[in-house]
Design a protein around this nucleic acid. Sequence first.
DNA 1: GAGCCGCATCATAGCGCTACGATTTCTGAA
DNA 2: TTCAGAAATCGTAGCGCTATGATGCGGCTC
Lengths: 384, 384
Amino acid sequence: MGFMDNLKQVLEIEDCSLQHKGLILLSQRYMGGDMSEEKKPGSERPARQRRKMQSITMMDVAEYAKVSPSTVSLYLRRPEAVSAGAGSAIAHAIDKLNYVPNLVAGGLAAASSRAVSIIVPSVRNAFFAETVAAMQTALRKERLQVILGHTEYDEREEEDLVRTALSWAPAAIVLTGLSHSETTRRMLSKVKVPVIEIWELGGPQIDAAIGFHHDQVGAAAARHLIQQGRRHLAYLGARMHEDRRARLRCDGFVAAASEAGVEVNVVQHPAPSSAEAGAMLLSETMQDFPQTDGIACSNDHVALGVLFECERLKIAVPDRLATIGFGDLSFSAACNPPLSTIRPSGDLIGKEAARLIVEHMAGKEPDSQTTIDTRFTLLHRRSS
Amino acid sequence: MGFMDNLKQVLEIEDCSLQHKGLILLSQRYMGGDMSEEKKPGSERPARQRRKMQSITMMDVAEYAKVSPSTVSLYLRRPEAVSAGAGSAIAHAIDKLNYVPNLVAGGLAAASSRAVSIIVPSVRNAFFAETVAAMQTALRKERLQVILGHTEYDEREEEDLVRTALSWAPAAIVLTGLSHSETTRRMLSKVKVPVIEIWELGGPQIDAAIGFHHDQVGAAAARHLIQQGRRHLAYLGARMHEDRRARLRCDGFVAAASEAGVEVNVVQHPAPSSAEAGAMLLSETMQDFPQTDGIACSNDHVALGVLFECERLKIAVPDRLATIGFGDLSFSAACNPPLSTIRPSGDLIGKEAARLIVEHMAGKEPDSQTTIDTRFTLLHRRSS
DNA sequence: GAGCCGCATCATAGCGCTACGATTTCTGAA
DNA sequence: TTCAGAAATCGTAGCGCTATGATGCGGCTC
């Protein structure tokens, strides 16, 4: 029962469901048609071998329910458009035959598949995982599938992912961020697929954008620390050369601090965000800028590392050093001290994206430049 | 430029790519065929409106490269099967026309789409996120897409996800764990799609299984703590009523401890794993079983909470209480003290799964009951 | 009773591609 | 040179479904 056999051996539908004995499968009647008589009138038909077959097709359902295939199709897409009698006959047939529609065939016929392509830097990142999960949950209710792709923060990779995404004729494409290659933009503009950009606001967008302003996050962190009486700030960032959004937060932080006339330094590390990176950055910071009394981190992983390192270095948090992170990750509230942080609503982004897609499919004309600001919340806990 | 318009207005291909001016699109020649003359000999053709169209089709490429569509198709699937001359002509045409193959059409014709359906409890869970990410990366190289589904630890949901997964005719289906509903099993057995079960070993499997034995993880943790001289053990578990694998680890832990004649208690909480749950569980444990001197946690989130709570309660780790987690999450090495833990190889699971799928597609007959044990590693750090 | 409208249903013509089998072209041995 | 066998290429018939336009069928109004 190899997979390739699939393509070779299947000749006949037989007995795929337990319940439909005695049913003559309509498919055969339709398929063995006689409308090619004029092509070579006289040559016996070569009886080309059937290539494959899904067990139960819509035609079988139609046969069973004594309606035409079109009606079954119609029922499946808009149940309210068929009469109650036909409807229940079809429903009964589907149930009885255990019919599973072939979405691939449907997608081809309809010029659009019931799939949504989501392209994120990485699902390993808790932020995007949350959004993807929320979207998946919301889209499932509309019987839409999620096709996932990872760019690993590489624009070239994104371009390639968009290309393959398009070859699925998805109902929508979701991209992360507003920054894409020229080719990516061109491909997307050439095509009638709605594009939703998530997790970033404040730049030129393709269609709709859902997210928040990262510079505002940075600014909020700076204002918060200043409000706590801190005058020597530092921003600790990991992987900022790749993570555009972390950089934007950093920029917002620096801008707001400078504007308030407060000292501000940026300490960064090219490694991915992690507690280890945070610990390293903290010790570097205290060495280079010993007067630092307020720290914002590119995210909570980094902030956790800061907390641990402070403990090791006997730096009192928040007394000697206030710390604020970003993300409100699962551990943040349970830290010692509980970590002040800024919570973006990753799940809201996902939900809103799903909503937009569904509305779009329902024909609602979106303003094409829809922008949804999901905001963020500063959680003042005991680390600041 | 709404999405629905797509289905109504597109009548003509025009100027979709900048470079192919002067090209007569072959599609039209083929499509406006004259082979239906005998149907109603005399009735003028009603010129039914074309429904949709992807800009550049394989026929256009064939025309441009002066070969037949079949050859283009062949080239795309097995480049080595066409001559060098034809190959480069086709490659040139594809490049020039900016052709993107329609995978939906291909999937329908081939009876199997280039998609792999991955069904996990949740991508929010770092373990599964890692596996999904690794698989995605590996499958991309073979131009396979990942279709994602979340069960949220619900068998009923899984059943439904499998049903829709099947309607995509995927190249393979990846499920998490070995425990599935009867209907799920029946659906899968009826179909020629390879099934790979991941993250669990040691039960009846459908096709291939890749993972490790969770009871061995628990046993390893118990043995480790006993080896460290601990005689009063406890297992702290979150969400064990839903997470079968956490339960298996717990069982293994208890069994190994009992066998060694060591006291062992299980303290659990229905909430999802989190540092907060861990903190709660720790304080509960120390209250109910104050003599406890060795703790294993259902995962590192819980262990982190234990660490934090110990700090608050001034319980010395590891002197008074040894702690070991599971997962080796991003923060585990940077904790204070660094957390002993057991590392499963989530990425290896993903890579191996991808390898199996690819081999299967290449026609390699897998033994259908392939089992790959990816093992785990006990990392003895300073918390134990 | 004719004409008309609206609803439910249907027949049809593909969607773009692949796999089969057939045909053509290219080898190299006889 | 001939011809079998291999290699390259091609023509064709769908894959299972959906959108379109057409048809049939009451129930209305005039």
